[in-house]
């Protein structure tokens, strides 16, 4: 009897997934999967996870498959950060008791959800505008450019234990994100999310391209370190 129920449940979940049902049923509780982007701060404060309605323009599919099976926190102070801080003796600190973990999916579910997410590409126009120039930059040069001269570390961790915590960690960005998305988002965060916490720093084309190379350097180092 138990086996029959299990088979029925599995069969059902397969059918639901095939129609992208898990996105509607489970993911939509915390993620914006239909768009449009958040238009007001009141709505931004309520966000529980990143918008996924342009996931196919943003993420690397292989990373999604792997992360969904073994999710780890990317934004140390959660989303939105202001809902997860408390006053401490030295100033604001992360209130970990308010953070919740992302559910882990089976390999089959992760593969199928990632495939569904990759179909969501409403911003092909923004992606098509971007070209990636090949190149490399040493970690040292990148650090000089992007932390001393541009200040990314104010809000982002550039190493597991170094940098700000309100934004997503940068040392895994190139593993997670498509390079054209990185370029487009740095060029104009507001084109993707009008209420993004990320400012437009008006970087030159050369610096945007260097930034991608630096993120690739950081991600490779993070991979080697694990």
């Amino acid at each position: 009897m138990k086996r029959m129920i299990l088979v029925t449940v599995l069969g059902f979940s397969g059918a639901v997934l095939a129609e992208g049902g898990m996105l509607q049923e489970s993911c939509a509780a915390c993620h914006n999967i239909k768009g449009p982007a958040t238009q007001t701060l009141k709505a931004a404060f309520e966000k529980k996870g990143p918008a996924l309605f342009y996931a196919g323009n943003k993420y690397r599919q292989e990373w999604l498959v792997s992360w969904l099976q073994k999710p780890s926190r990317i934004r140390p102070a959660g989303m939105y950060y202001g809902g997860h801080i408390k006053p401490g003796p030295k100033g604001d600190e992360i209130d970990t008791s308010t953070l919740t973990d992302h559910i882990a999916l089976s390999k089959a579910d992760a593969t199928s959800v990632a495939a569904e997410l990759m179909k969501l590409k409403p911003h092909n126009d923004l992606i098509a505008k971007e070209k990636i120039e090949s190149g490399t930059i040493s970690k040292q040069m990148g650090e000089m450019a992007f932390n001393k001269f541009l200040g990314c570390m104010a809000c982002h961790l550039i190493e597991p234990e170094y940098g700000g915590v309100s934004g997503p960690e940068l040392y895994t960005a190139a593993k997670r994100l498509q390079p054209q998305y990185i370029v487009s988002f740095i060029r104009s965060p507001q084109a993707w999310e009008p209420k993004s916490m990320m400012p437009n720093k008006n970087l030159s084309e050369v610096n945007i391209q260097k930034m991608v190379h630096y993120l690739e350097t950081l991600s490779k180092e993070a991979t080697n370190g694990h």
């Binding site: 102070a77 600190e93 104010a154 170094y162």
Partner: peptide, 8 residues
């Protein structure tokens, strides 16, 4: 004394 200041 924001949440980001530790390493600034």
């Amino acid at each position: 004394k924001g949440v980001n200041v530790r390493d600034m």
